[in-house]
């Protein structure tokens, strides 16, 4: 329990530092800056993995919970968007399919370890 609390404090502190840097004028959101900061700190050993591991695991396991209030907000936007709704939905669904499949198939080609030159020729 103490481990999770302390780890959470480290993560929140890094997030706040990211927010501060963002306010000062770096055009990347605080959360993403914090992510980069924590990554670099882990890599350089400034932050030890075991300090934050349990807390990060806890936050990430329940990340879906944190998205629920925003998603419930679509309820209000349904009326705001009603006139353009079908255009928006069609373009989002089609574009989603394009991104998912392009990235997935490209990734399968480029990242898969089984994918040697013979496999590539067959495809």
């Amino acid at each position: 329990m103490i481990e999770v609390t302390a780890g959470t404090a480290v993560i929140v502190a890094i997030f706040l530092l990211g927010e501060l840097l963002h306010r000062v004028g770096i055009p990347v959101p605080g959360g993403v800056l914090g992510l980069l900061l924590l990554f670099v700190s882990l890599q350089t050993g400034l932050v030890k993995l075991k300090w934050v591991e349990r807390a990060a695991g806890f936050l990430l396991r329940h990340m879906v919970l944190l998205f629920i209030p925003l998603t419930v907000g679509l309820m209000d936007m349904a009326t705001l968007l009603s006139r353009q709704a079908w255009i928006i939905c069609t373009s989002i669904v089609l574009s989603f399919l394009a991104v998912l499949l392009v990235t997935g198939l490209l990734g399968d080609r480029l990242l898969s370890p089984a994918c040697d030159s013979i496999e590539a020729d067959k495809a």
Partner: peptide, 29 residues
């Protein structure tokens, strides 16, 4: 109204910031 609900909901939304930072852990691992 959603506005009323979101007075509490926004406390949870705030934690998306730290959760995004936490993504560095699986990335590092």
């Amino acid at each position: 109204s959603y506005t009323d609900y979101n007075r509490g909901g926004s406390y949870l939304t705030w934690w998306l910031g730290p959760a995004t930072v936490a993504l560095a852990v699986p990335m590092y691992r």
